[in-house]
Every structure is written in structure tokens, then in C-alpha cells.
Computed example of a mutant assay.
Amino acid sequence: MSGTGKSAALRLLRARGHRTVDTDSDAWSRWVTLPDGSSDWIWREREITGLLTGHAAGHLFLAGCKSNQGDFYPLLDHVVLLSAPAHVLLARIERRTGNPYGKRPEERAAVLRHLATVEPLLRATASAEIDATAPIEEVVGRLERLAGS
């Protein structure tokens, strides 16, 4: 979910020597048009499969939330949900400077809508959930422990 600290966690994991990939880029994701005419931002199948099957040394940490991510769960050791209450997410989104998403009222409404509709789906398929209100060092430590570091 937006504002949970995924980007901050990736930065710290990378600084600790882990390979990290933020899948919210054109290199890893693409727009598709759904049968109803709406758009969806999904993982690029070939690229994500290559990333997951080609990684051999150390730990790989991925961040992102896509409607087709479940297709890749058999290739993942863990699926982790970082969670925080709505007021925490909105406050973080308001303060962040590296990502403009969530500044406009309609984007903030979408964040709340996703929290109500998407987060329960993620929780149901996650192998672990981490309270993202904890200090980032603690969140990253839990991620490393899950990975077996």
C-alpha cells in the first residue's frame, strides 16, 4: 500500500548489501487494457520471471503491488504485507518528497479505497505481515530475518 515505507525499506536493504527491485517502473511493469476498457498496471511476465529465476546469490527483495502478482507467488519465498493505519499512510504520503503520488485529493481517496479493498486481499495471500508503524530499521530487520539473513 502507498505510504507503508516500501521505498525506504528498499533503500536500507540495498545499503545493507541486498539486491532490491522496485517494480513500479516501466522496466518491470506495463499498462494493459482490460475487457471493460479500464487500465491496469501489471508486472511484465517475462522480465519478472527472469528476475526471480535468474537470481542466484544472496537475497532479493521486491516491492510492488500488481493484480497479476499472484501468478509469481510460486517463485517467491515470502510475500510480505507492510501495513499501517490510514492516518499514518496519509501523513507519510503528505510529507514525502520523492514520490508525488497521493498529493491530489482523488489520489488520497484512491489510497483509502485501496486500503479498504486491496489490503484485505493482500493480507489473505501474504506469508507474513509487518507493522510498518515500527521504525524502519525494525521493519528491515524483520524482512532480513524472514529471508534468513
Rank of each mutant, 00 (worst) to 15 (best):
G58W: 04
G58M: 09
H59Q: 06
H59E: 01
H59S: 02
H59G: 00
L60Q: 00
L60D: 00
L60W: 02
F61S: 01
F61D: 03
L62S: 03
L62R: 05
A63C: 06
A63H: 07
A63N: 15
G64I: 05
C65Q: 00
C65L: 01
C65W: 00
K66A: 15
K66D: 04
S67F: 09
N68Q: 01
N68W: 01
Q69P: 00
G70F: 00
G70H: 05
G70V: 07
D71Q: 10
F72W: 08
F72T: 00
Y73H: 12
P74Y: 06
P74I: 04
P74K: 02
L75Q: 02
L75G: 01
L75F: 00
D77E: 09
D77W: 11
D77A: 06
H78C: 04
H78P: 15
V79P: 02
V80G: 13
V80W: 12
V80R: 07
L81M: 06
L81D: 10
L81W: 08
L82Y: 03
L82R: 10
S83F: 09
A84N: 11
A84T: 11
A84Y: 07
P85D: 15
P85T: 13
P85K: 10
P85M: 03
A86S: 12
A86T: 14
H87F: 09
H87S: 13
H87W: 09
V88I: 10
V88M: 10
L89D: 11
L89K: 11
L90V: 07
L90N: 15
A91K: 14
A91N: 09
A91P: 13
A91I: 02
A91Y: 04
R92P: 00
R92D: 03
I93F: 08
I93A: 14
E94G: 11
E94N: 13
R95W: 06
R95F: 09
R96H: 06
R96K: 02
R96F: 03
T97F: 15
T97R: 15
N99L: 07
P100S: 11
P100F: 13
Y101A: 12
Y101S: 05
Y101D: 12
Y101R: 13
Y101E: 10
G102E: 05
G102Q: 02
G102V: 05
K103S: 11
K103I: 04
K103D: 05
R104Q: 11
P105N: 01
P105C: 06
P105A: 08
P105G: 06
E106H: 15
E106M: 14
E107M: 09
R108V: 10
R108F: 10
A109H: 08
A109V: 14
A109G: 05
A109L: 06
A110M: 08
A110V: 03
A110G: 07
V111D: 04
V111C: 07
V111S: 05
V111I: 09
L112G: 10
R113N: 04
H114F: 12
L115I: 04
L115N: 14
L115R: 05
L115W: 07
A116G: 07
A116Q: 13
A116E: 15
A116S: 13
T117E: 14
V118R: 06
V118F: 01
V118G: 02
V118A: 04
V118M: 07
E119D: 07
E119C: 00
E119W: 03
E119A: 04
P120Q: 08
P120K: 14
P120S: 08
L121W: 09
L122M: 08
L122F: 10
L122S: 13
L122P: 02
L122Y: 15
L122D: 12
